[in-house]
Each structure stands twice: as C-alpha cells, then as structure tokens.
Design a protein around this nucleic acid. Structure first.
Lengths: 136, 136
DNA sequence: CTTGACTCTGGACTATACTCCAAGGTTTAT
DNA sequence: ATAAACCTTGGAGTATAGTCCAGAGTCAAG
C-alpha cells in the first residue's frame, strides 16, 4: 500500500502542509495512522479525500458543509437524493447571492450614469448625493 | 446646534453604539468633541456621515473603501470623475464576482442533472463522482 | 555522521465587520 | 437621593479559511 507523509500529500494536491493540518482539526481529513515518532501517515484514499475537499470548495461549499458531504458519502443509509439536496441548497444560496449582487450592481451603474464626471465639482456628484440622502 | 450622544446617534441610524465606536476606530466617524466627562459629542453632520457609511455598505463597499470615499468627498482637489472611478471599480469587481458565481452555479446544476436521486446508491452519484475524480 | 529537509505542537496572526463584556464613572428621572 | 439608563475603556469573541511561527525532534542523503 502506498503511504504518504503530510508533505507528499500536500504536494499531490498543491496545498500547504498547514492547510492539511487545518482540515484535520476541522474533522475533514484524519491521518490513517502515526509513525512511532508521531509523524502523520496518509493513504491514497487520503489523496482522494483531499481532492474531494478542494473540488467541493471550488463549488462554493464551506469546510463545514464539506464535512457533512463527506459524512453523507460514507453513510450507507444515505442515497443520491441526500447529496442532490445539498447541491440544490447550495445552488439556491448562490442564486440568491447572484441576484443580490445584480441589484447592487444596477444601483451602482444607475448612480454613475448621472454623475457628470471629470472637472465637475463634487457637490454635483449623483453618487455622493445618494450617500448623503436621508431616505433609506 | 443640535448635538447627539453616541446612543442618540446610534438610534438615528439604527446601528449599535459599538458599531459607531468601531467606525471611529477605523477612522470613519470621529466625534465632533468630548464633554468634560469624556462623553462623545456628535453633530447632525455626524448623522449624515453615518448614513453615508451605511448606504455605501449596502452598495458593497468595505469600510476601508468608504473611508477613501469620505476622504475624497472632502478633498477640494477631487472631482466627480474620482468618485465615479471608485464606483466603476466596485461595479467591475461585483461583475466579476457575479460571473464567477454563475459559472459555479452552472457546474452545480449540471452535476445534479445526472445524479439519479432517490433510492439510488451513492456509488452512482454524479456529484460525488465528480468530487472524487482525479482531474482538475 | 553531519547537514538539510522534514515533521511535531500550540498558539498567534491575517482579513472583515462587528458584537459583547467587565468594571467603573456620569447623567437623568422620579 | 437613589436607581435606572447611559457612557467610558480595552480586550476578547464571532465567523471563515487558512498561514506563519518558534522550538524541538526526526529522517534521508552524501
């Protein structure tokens, strides 16, 4: 069986050693074992698991959510619907964030449109005016 | 001249007293003065300034960026173009964030599409498969 | 067998924006 | 006059995801 030190595992997934220890501390990636001198020992399964963490992160899951995903993925009572539900929830949250950002961006663009620009005194600035306005 | 204690100012903009002190610590909102006993004293201009901070926050500016905006807004050498440039930069950053989120959401939706769902073993889950895949 | 590379631990630090706390002093209302 | 409500400070804690450090021990190569 192939085994890895923490440094090799880190390199295999292009993360820092400290990050792996951080994941361990968060319960995401426990070492397979320790050597007599206390060094962490990892398996090729650890590589898969670490890859899982990184990929899920790229899709916007937090470490805590990833921990839950990993737990599910090892629960024999779980089925595809459970995972799909997690994905749907994340997708919905992202959708919400997107629409919030779109509305913010619209406001910014709208405000800028009426800002006269170069050479004009700040007292005429539509953006600053908005910021100082009384209304909510 | 109308003056405010920190508590009144807080209420006027529906923020906590601690938040105002936090803004002060960050250089966003200094009290006009202090009473003999050390109480902060604010003016109606402070109300405007605090409103400014909250509004700019709603448009996605960080406290540090807001500090810069406030500085600009009080700089007699600045003009509308300076403020507009800040707004444009923020707008661009938001746009970037939106498109990142859209691409993440697309991936999630795509992965979920091929996940068979209820009753099917996790070994068939397209989402988990993706997470465990070797490719970047 | 020594040097350099690696690993260990625990804790501090980064960024962002608060929020809460304790222990004390001040002001206001009854 | 006294109690409630307010204010002061500095520091710690919240959340997220690392990153870095010191000081010590271990391992591999020449």
């Amino acid at each position: 069986m192939t085994v890895f030190t923490i440094g090799k595992l880190a390199k295999s997934c292009d993360v820092k050693v400290d990050t792996i220890r951080h994941y361990e501390q968060k319960g995401l990636l426990l070492p397979l074992d320790r050597t007599a001198s206390g060094y962490r020992v990892y398996s090729s399964n650890s590589v898969k698991r670490l890859r899982f963490v990184r990929k899920a992160q790229h899709l916007g899951f937090t470490l805590e959510e990833i921990r839950e995903l990993l737990e599910l993925s090892e629960n024999s009572d779980a089925d595809c619907a459970d995972i799909r539900e997690k994905a749907r929830m994340k997708s919905d949250a992202i959708e919400k964030r997107i629409s919030d950002l779109i509305s913010i961006k619209k406001s910014l663009v709208e405000l800028s449109k009426y800002c006269p620009g170069k050479g004009v005194s700040l007292s005429e600035c539509s953006i600053l005016k908005h910021f100082y306005e009384e209304s909510e």
